[in-house]
């Protein structure tokens, strides 16, 4: 059985009087892709920064590959790679140059760094701009270059803090595929995101964090199964015949999302509509719904 890639034990961090993370305990085994989700200010980035030894824990402790993040920080740094949230590539370098020099800074020989840079430019679909300066690239292209740099590092554990924020759908799919490929080869990845669809699609396990505490950690499929509802119906507000009310709904202004336990309940909902064309969509529930139930207490 493989050991933990990283683990936290009652981990906390305070910034003066405010706690960025209060009490986080979780672990992820090697060769897994864990996705950390939670609202803004929940403590996701603080958790990542402590795991990558950028921040020092104020309470509790954390381990990466069985090593303490404080006592063994130098040994840990040799085996990890990190994409900080909102990080941009050096705009004076080309995608190929940026990846190549960063790999060399990690200790790769120049010839190997060149080959890997060439490979990752292709994998990321950036061949068309491989020799263009960073300042001529779009925000998404720049982000893909830095993500490629982290993924190309051959690190045992890779931490990606919102790597797909601002990427178009196709680019996100490219990153998802590359991330899954790397995990299949045995690398462990911790990725943070606000995109629940992303977490649902790529995660082996999802860690939900809120107000500095871990709420739950499980495989996305298990989390979805744990919901009592199976479907959600989005309708225009005011389209129900009088007398209808539901406590399992989300108000979206002039629209409403209503949760239903099964298909019969969905049919019942539809039958109460004044006009069936007021239905916007009918979907199965997903991780986003689990997240909303967890964060807002159902």
């Amino acid at each position: 059985m493989m050991g933990y890639a990283f683990a936290t034990f009652e981990l906390g961090k305070n910034y003066g009087k405010a706690w960025g993370l209060k009490d986080a305990t979780f672990h992820v085994e090697q060769g897994r892709l864990a996705v950390l989700v939670g609202p803004n200010g929940a403590g996701k980035t603080t958790t990542v920064k402590m795991l990558v030894t950028v921040l020092k824990p104020s309470k509790g402790r954390a381990e990466v590959l069985g090593m303490d993040v404080v006592k063994d920080c130098k040994r840990i740094r040799k085996r990890i790679a990190y994409f900080p949230q909102g990080f941009m590539m050096n705009l004076n370098l080309t995608p190929e140059g940026y990846i190549k020099w960063n790999l060399m800074a990690r200790g790769f020989p120049l010839s190997e760094a060149k080959l890997k840079a060439d490979e990752w430019v292709k994998l990321m679909g950036l061949q068309y701009c491989r020799n263009r300066a960073g300042w001529t690239l779009s925000g998404g292209e720049r982000r893909k270059v830095v993500v490629a740099t982290a993924l190309a590092s051959d690190a045992d554990v890779i931490f990606l803090d919102e790597p797909t924020a601002g990427l178009d759908v196709e680019s996100r799919h490219v990153v998802w595929r590359l991330v899954r490929d790397i995990v299949a080869k045995g690398t462990t990845i911790l990725l943070t995101t606000h995109d629940m669809k992303e977490a649902e699609m790529i995660a082996d396990e999802v860690i939900v964090i809120n107000e500095g505490k871990v709420l739950i950690k499980d495989a996305p499929q298990n989390l979805i199964k744990s919901l009592s509802h199976r479907y959600k119906v989005a309708v225009k507000k005011g389209s129900f015949k009088s007398g209808f009310s539901s406590i399992y709904s989300i108000d979206l202004g002039d629209r409403l999302i209503i949760y239903a336990n099964d298909s019969r309940e969905v049919e019942g909902l539809i039958s109460r509509l004044n006009d069936p064309s007021s239905i916007i969509s009918i979907d199965s529930v997903g991780l986003e719904d689990v997240y909303l139930h967890l964060i807002h207490g159902g």
């Binding site: 030894t53 950028v54 130098k74 740094r77 040799k78 994409f83 909102g86 990080f87 800074a105 990690r106």
Partner: peptide
């Protein structure tokens, strides 16, 4: 400010290597 420093901290680059670079 632009997080290059953090990017290098969480890597095999040490402070003397960064400074020398």
């Amino acid at each position: 400010i632009n997080l290059t420093y953090e990017f290098f901290v969480a890597s095999p680059v040490t402070l003397p290597i960064y400074f020398a670079g």
